[in-house]
Amino acid sequence: MKIAAISDIHGNLAALDAVLSDIQKIGVDQVVNLGDICSGSLFPRETAERLIPMGLPTVRGNHERQVLTLSVEQMGPSDRYAAETLTPAHLEWFDSLPSTIRLNDEVLLVHGTPDSDLTYFLETVGPEGLRRATRAEIRDRAGTVDARVILCGHTHLARVETLDDGRLIVNPGSVGLPAYDDDRPYPHVVEAESPHARYAIVSNDGRGWSAEIRRVEYDWEQAARVAETNGRHEWARALRTGRT
Rank of each mutant, 00 (worst) to 15 (best):
R215C: 02
D165I: 13
D165E: 14
G55T: 01
L97M: 12
R214N: 12
Q222I: 10
R132C: 04
R240A: 01
N12K: 12
E191A: 11
D164I: 11
S39Q: 12
E217A: 15
L91H: 06
A192I: 01
G112F: 05
S21W: 11
V175S: 12
I9Q: 02
C152V: 09
I26Y: 04
I201G: 06
S7W: 01
Y218R: 06
T241M: 05
F121A: 13
N204F: 08
A147T: 03
H233F: 15
T47N: 08
A179K: 03
A5Y: 02
R243Y: 04
V67C: 15
P44G: 05
R132W: 05
H154E: 13
L108D: 00
V59R: 07
P53Y: 09
E106H: 13
R50K: 13
D17F: 04
P44A: 03
L177D: 10
R214W: 09
H188G: 05
D115V: 06
R237G: 00
R131M: 05
L108H: 01
N230V: 07
A5R: 08
E123L: 03
R237A: 03
D183N: 14
E84S: 02
P77G: 03
G40D: 06
V19D: 07
G166T: 13
R215H: 13
Q222M: 12
D95R: 15
S7N: 00
P53D: 12
Y120K: 07
L151C: 10
G61N: 01
D164H: 14
E217Y: 11
F43L: 07
P185N: 08
W93G: 04
M75A: 10
D79W: 03
L103Y: 06
A89V: 01
D164C: 10
S203P: 00
R215E: 14
T85W: 03
P57I: 04
D117V: 15
A82K: 02
L51D: 11
G55N: 08
D183W: 14
W209H: 03
A211Q: 13
H233A: 13
D165L: 10
T85A: 05
R148L: 14
L20Y: 04
S7C: 00
A15M: 00
V107W: 08
A5P: 08
I169V: 15
E217W: 08
I201H: 04
T162N: 02
P172M: 12
M1Y: 03
G206S: 10
L51I: 15
Y180C: 12
V110Y: 02
V125R: 13
Y218G: 06
D79Y: 02
T241I: 03
E73W: 12
V149A: 09
T124H: 12
R60T: 09
C38I: 14
L130C: 00
D140Y: 12
A14D: 06
Y199R: 08
I169R: 13
